[in-house]
C-alpha cells in the first residue's frame, strides 16, 4: 500500500468520525430534549435560580443571588478564600448593589 493511500484512508476515517461527532451531537440533543424539559420544569416548579456547580460557599452556590460583598463579608479586611471565587465573576445586576 502506498503511503499516500494509507494517509488518505486514515484522513477519510478521521473526517468520517468528525462527521459522526456532529451526528452524535444532533442525536444527543434530540435524546436529551425531554430531560432538558424535565429539568426546566423542575426549575420552574421549585423556583430554582442556579446550577449546582460549586457548593463550597453560598455566593458560589448561588452566584446570581449573591451581592457584590458576599465574598468578603466574613470579617473586616476578609479576603475571598475559596478557590472557586477566582473562577466566578460578580453577578451582573442593573446598577443595584
Amino acid at each position: 500500500m502506498r503511503k499516500s493511500d494509507a494517509f488518505l484512508t486514515l484522513s477519510a476515517v478521521l473526517l468520517l468520525l468528525l462527521g459522526a461527532s456532529f451526528a452524535d451531537a444532533a442525536r444527543g440533543l434530540v435524546r436529551e430534549e425531554p430531560a432538558l424539559e424535565r429539568k426546566a420544569e423542575m426549575v420552574g416548579r421549585l423556583g430554582l435560580t442556579d446550577l449546582v456547580l460549586f457548593t463550597e460557599a453560598r455566593y458560589t452556590r448561588h452566584p446570581s443571588q449573591a451581592d457584590l460583598h458576599s465574598a468578603f463579608q466574613d470579617h473586616p479586611f476578609a479576603m475571598d478564600h475559596f478557590p472557586t471565587g477566582s473562577l466566578l465573576p460578580p453577578p451582573i445586576l442593573k446598577g443595584r448593589p
Binding site: A25, V52, T55, E56
Partner: peptide, 13 residues
C-alpha cells in the same frame, strides 16, 4: 474547588 458535594452530570452535546 473545595466543594465536597459535586454533581455527577452528563452534558447535553
Amino acid at each position: 474547588g473545595w466543594a465536597v458535594l459535586y454533581p455527577k452530570y452528563r452534558l447535553t452535546p
